[in-house]
Design a protein around this nucleic acid. Structure first.
Length: 709
DNA sequence: GTGTAATGCCTTTTT
DNA sequence: GGCATTACAC
């Protein structure tokens, strides 16, 4: 059955979907059906007879690409198998892997993640003898930031420091030395960082005509999502892939540009018509996602921007309640208020349709603790990543060595667990091994017990390992004792993580792609679980949407981040970030502005100022409620014709499928860490109890978290 | 010179 | 709570 494009799309979407050959730029406001447009275009191309393998879809995460392709397949009624899709980085990696000689002389393609880069930088810095006993020498993380930023923005370090980090100018010469040393280090050990992938692909495309011809012939249609967050080299790659008059569709929204910090360049959108001559420009401005009250608020956020965006989103939907502005007394009680609100919302929305968003990963820690105590399932996106955990990196180091014996970073990791071996000794041992210097090696083996066994294990691994999963199993056999010794307090949890890694490995035939994918795509983000609350950084929430969105820590120094205070450009990006956060909400938006923050350094709770972005919003945009000293909520300051009951209006229950209420008999008394003393009203399945807590109402709690009285 | 234990510091965002 | 620096032991 053919797809009824006219009925399912608005005129602008239709225009984009049906656009024939040649370049087109789609400026798509938040919630304006951007993804829908891409999905329908994929389907339309397929219907037109374009073979799927001729389509390349570059998106921000590989998951996003897969999802769009599969949705297009569903629309068509047949899978769109063969369509190429992924991030710029993963695409670059796959091209380079097919032609390893393009990457390096040795053809080594060991991919470094951020942690590896920082390890390498420490190595280089120490090797140069820089920064010793100088407390203000730039930290590894700072060096990594600066070096990659300069590269992505394609400016000299000097210019970058002058513009963005004036106080580090005295270290310019040192940093330049480190940056140069870092390049040499990577070359010398067959390592590639994220930036190398892009620049190597660009160089290959522009220098090797055969490659350009091959890829242009293969990918007749290139589509790029989130174009506002591409950087200069990515834009050039698009151009090289498509040619000036090629079939490119770029989709983006300049108001949602939130990656300037890593070199993204909004100007790419503005330049698009200049680079691709005759590009058609289509604007999508009707918002299908959110209710008008939510859009009124997000429009106000944008209205305060220094750069005027000529857009005011208009809702296609009717009705909707005012967003809520909750003012808890502190960030500690905020966690409790968030839980209350989530429980209230969960009566109307499934749990996985509710998201709590925040500026930085650590901001959800108090909430995570409370959720765990309560026994409520949640899924967190952003923040510390699975593959960056020490034990995962350890296990991967052994695997990496089988592919790239020159990978010094992995040698250091692998050997560091032997008593008496630190970075320096590890380096020497690895050098002895690589140089075939047996006498030196034997001396080390005599001195350090365990080294001999480890090298034997590694040799066996290299000789016998076939599949990634098989290899990893061998690694775990000799790494597990190390793990137990190294992490006595929490090795069970880490062991579970390694089991999970084994599961992931089982999906791969090839070790290189397994290792690369881990770095390129985090943990292959688990599918959205049903009935788990979503916690996410705003950055990781990009492109997603939920029925209800709760935004926490909207105070000065947290959102906007303290680090963004100094430069107006950074502050502007924070504003757009808030815009992105709020436009994720379909039906309900709740903003939390705690009145004080706990300072873990001095153990005091200090007053906090509301985020300036919130202060400047007109009162009419939201309904304000305050936490009272008694723990309840009450309407505050600006009176509103409050229609919806506040979060504390009445006792309520958790869970989306609340079973019929049990007779209010008391089965006993108990105590909970957060909610205090309560009465057990019913015993439920799975060791859960329904408990009535004075002041909090009815909750369902797992028995383990209750102290029976 | 090297490894380790103790002490002080500050917490962004990500491929 | 993790990281870097420092002081101390081998």
């Amino acid at each position: 059955m053919p797809i009824d494009f006219e009925r399912q799309l608005n005129p602008q979407q239709l225009e984009a979907v049906r656009h024939g050959d040649g370049p087109v730029l789609v400026i798509a406001g938040a919630g304006s059906g951007k993804t829908r447009t891409i999905v329908y275009r994929l389907a339309h191309l397929a219907e037109r007879g374009v073979p799927p393998e001729q389509i390349l879809l570059l998106t921000f995460t590989r998951k996003a690409a897969q999802e769009m392709v599969s949705r297009a397949g569903a629309l068509l009624g047949r899978p769109l198998a063969g369509a190429g899709g992924g991030t710029f980085h993963s695409f670059a990696y796959s091209v380079l892997r097919r032609h390893p000689q393009l990457a390096s002389d040795t053809g080594n393609l060991t991919l470094m993640d951020r942690g590896d880069a920082e390890d390498a930088l420490r190595e280089v810095r120490d090797g140069l003898g820089l920064g010793k006993s100088d407390r203000s020498f730039p930290k590894r993380a700072t060096m990594a930031d600066l070096i990659t930023k300069a590269r992505n923005k394609e400016v000299e370090l000097k210019d970058l420091l002058e513009r963005e980090a004036f106080h580090l100018l005295p270290y310019l010469a040192d940093l330049e030395q480190v940056a140069a040393g870092y390049e040499t280090f990577k070359r010398g050990h067959g390592l590639l960082d994220y930036d190398d992938l892009l620049f190597l692909l660009e160089r290959a495309l522009s220098e090797q005509e055969w490659l350009r011809t091959e890829l242009r012939a293969r990918f007749r249609h290139v589509m790029v999502d989130e174009y506002q967050d591409t950087n200069l080299v990515q834009a050039r790659i698009v151009r090289l892939l498509a040619g000036e008059s090629g079939n490119v569709m770029a989709v983006g929204d300049d108001a949602q540009s939130i990656y300037a910090f890593r070199g993204a360049n909004v100007a790419n959108i503005l330049e698009f018509p200049k680079i691709f001559t005759g590009a058609r420009i289509i604007r999508l401005e009707r918002n299908y996602r959110s209710t008008q009250p939510i859009l009124d608020l997000t429009n106000e956020i944008l209205a305060g921007a220094a750069q005027k965006f000529d857009k005011r989103l208009v809702a296609a939907r009717h009705g909707g309640d005012l967003p809520l502005l909750v003012q808890p007394l502190s960030d500690q009680s905020q966690a409790r208020q968030v839980l209350n609100t989530v429980m209230e919302l969960s009566r109307r929305h499934p749990l996985h349709e509710i998201a709590v968003l925040f500026r930085a990963g650590y901001q959800s820690f108090p909430l995570e603790a409370a959720l765990t105590q309560l026994g409520m399932a949640y899924q967190k996106y952003g923040g510390i990543r699975f593959h960056e955990a020490a034990h995962i990196k350890d296990a991967l180091a052994y695997l990496r060595l089988t592919r790239n014996p020159g990978d010094m970073l992995s040698w250091q990791r692998a050997l560091a667990h032997i008593r008496g071996i630190g970075p320096k000794t590890a380096l020497r041992i690895a050098q002895a091994i690589l140089a075939g210097d047996q006498p030196a090696l034997q001396k080390k083996i005599k001195k350090h017990t365990g080294l001999d066994a480890l090298l034997r294990d590694l040799d066996t691994l290299r000789r016998t390992a076939k599949t990634p999963a098989g290899a990893l199993e061998q690694v775990l056999a000799f790494y597990t004792p190390v793990l137990v010794a190294q992490f006595p307090d929490d090795y069970p949890k880490r062991q579970a993580g390694l089991e999970q890694l084994l599961q992931i490995a089982a999906g791969y035939q090839d070790l290189d792609s397994f290792l690369a994918d881990l770095s390129l795509d985090g943990e292959q983000q688990e599918a959205r679980r049903d009935d788990a609350l979503v916690l996410s950084t705003v950055h990781s929430a990009k492109g997603l949407e939920w029925d209800a969105v709760l935004l926490i820590d909207l105070v000065q120094d947290r959102f906007p981040s303290k680090k963004a205070q100094a430069r107006p450009e950074d502050l502007e990006e924070e504003r757009r970030l808030l815009y992105v956060a709020c436009t994720r909400a379909r039906d309900e938006l709740v903003l939390f502005v705690p009145g004080s923050l706990y300072n873990r350094y001095n153990g005091c709770t200090e007053p906090a100022l509301p985020s300036p972005f919130v202060s400047e919003l007109p009162e009419a945009c939201f309904r304000r409620v305050q936490e009272s000293y008694l723990g309840g909520m009450r309407p505050a300051a600006c009176p509103e014709p409050a229609r919806r009951p506040g979060p504390e209006a009445e006792p309520r229950e958790t869970g989306t499928t609340s079973p019929p209420r049990a007779a209010p008999e008391t089965l006993g008394r108990c105590k909970h860490k957060i909610f205090g003393p309560g009465k057990i009203v019913a015993k439920l399945e799975d060791n859960k109890y329904r408990v009535n807590f004075p002041g909090f109402g009815l909750k369902v709690i797992v028995g383990d978290y209750l102290e029976m009285l």
